[in-house]
């Protein structure tokens, strides 16, 4: 029963908390840059404002354009239910396979890219083409690096991976884990469209990746996309925290108290990661577009080396 409760808890945490995480990150950046900032709740206020607006779809767009926000948000919610954030003991445990999770995240990205293409505008196409370039390197890296982690554990099930890491924390110091951690951190930044890959705060339409794809969205659709993007960022950070700092995640048999502690721990971990990311961004600049494949190829290489190391360094 705690499994179901845990799942509900972590979906709620992600759904409600992710805009807050974005708010925290913006606030950190603002303070570090010497600005007052808009406050933690601003992303939620923005979402509320957008929800009240009229839904507008550009002329000539089809069902792909209308379905994409739903797909994006839907996949994010499913992943939120499956990934071991609060508990490793999910009733959806069979789905919590790393391949399934990666595929779900990719599905959301692809839906958005298709929607960008569906608008038929130059910017939608440009954003989609750039997003797919990034995606083509990000997804294999995620797969390969989690695969590397799965070799010592002997399973690709995320829950088991986390449980195994929690049981033997010394293995976290191995080159396999470190290489995979670096690779996953880089692609998480790329996947969530942060500096140095993409600038979430830009108004320069020619440099955008994520923002260019969603340039034609307005009102509730835009709200859904913004919310889903925040959830994806939260999930990626949560996954990172779970894989490389698994302490505190409730395993089978943890009671209600265990779940509560696990929830607090995960909130702390994700917040710390988010703050670190935001603080890092302040001192970072955006890479030239042609340098991004280099960065991603580098992360892919690390993932591959992690796999190689997991074979020979045992």
């Amino acid at each position: 029963m705690t499994g179901v409760a845990g799942v509900v808890l972590q979906v709620l945490l992600v759904a409600v908390g992710s805009p807050l995480l974005v708010g925290v990150m913006r606030q950190v950046r603002a303070r570090l840059e010497g600005r007052a900032g808009a406050g933690l709740w601003q992303p939620w206020r923005d979402l509320r404002k957008l929800m009240r607006k009229q839904a507008i779809t550009p002329a000539g767009t089809g069902w792909v354009f209308r379905a994409a926000p739903m797909v994006l948000a839907g996949t994010a919610l499913v992943v939120a239910a499956v990934v071991p954030l609060v508990t490793t003991e999910s009733p959806l445990d069979g789905v919590a396979d790393l391949f399934a999770v990666t595929a779900l995240l990719a599905l959301g990205s692809v839906a958005l890219a298709l929607a960008g293409l569906d608008t038929g505008t130059a910017f939608g196409g440009m954003g989609a083409s750039r997003e797919v370039t990034v995606l083509a390197l990000v997804e294999p890296t995620i797969l390969v690096s989690v695969f590397a982690l799965s070799i010592p554990a002997g399973s690709t099930n995320l829950g088991e991976l986390v449980a195994a890491a929690e049981a033997n924390w010394l293995s976290l110091l191995s080159p396999v884990t470190l290489l995979a951690a670096v690779a996953l951190a880089i692609v998480s930044i790329a996947e969530s469209g942060r500096i140095p890959v993409d600038n979430p705060a830009t108004h320069l339409e020619l440099t955008m990746i994520h923002e260019a794809m969603i340039l034609e969205y307005a009102g509730p659709d835009l709200a859904l996309i913004e919310w889903a993007s925040a959830m994806r960022l939260t999930l990626l950070l949560g996954l990172l925290a779970g894989l490389f700092a698994p302490w505190g995640i409730a395993t089978a048999g943890a009671g209600a108290l265990g779940l509560l502690v696990a929830a607090i721990v995960v909130v702390v971990k994700v917040t710390v990661l988010g703050v670190a990311l935001a603080a890092g961004e302040v001192f970072m600049a955006k890479l030239r577009l042609f340098r991004i494949p280099e960065l991603l190829a580098g992360s892919f290489l690390m993932a591959l080396l992690a796999v190689a190391a997991s074979y020979f360094l045992v």
């Binding site: 840059e33 600038n199 705060a201 001192f283 600049a285 955006k286």
Partner: peptide, 16 residues
């Protein structure tokens, strides 16, 4: 120019 390469802290300082 710093802002256009997303280096926002220098933009903020230049603004000051």
């Amino acid at each position: 120019l710093c802002n256009d390469v997303a280096h926002s802290i220098l933009h903020a300082q230049a603004g000051r």
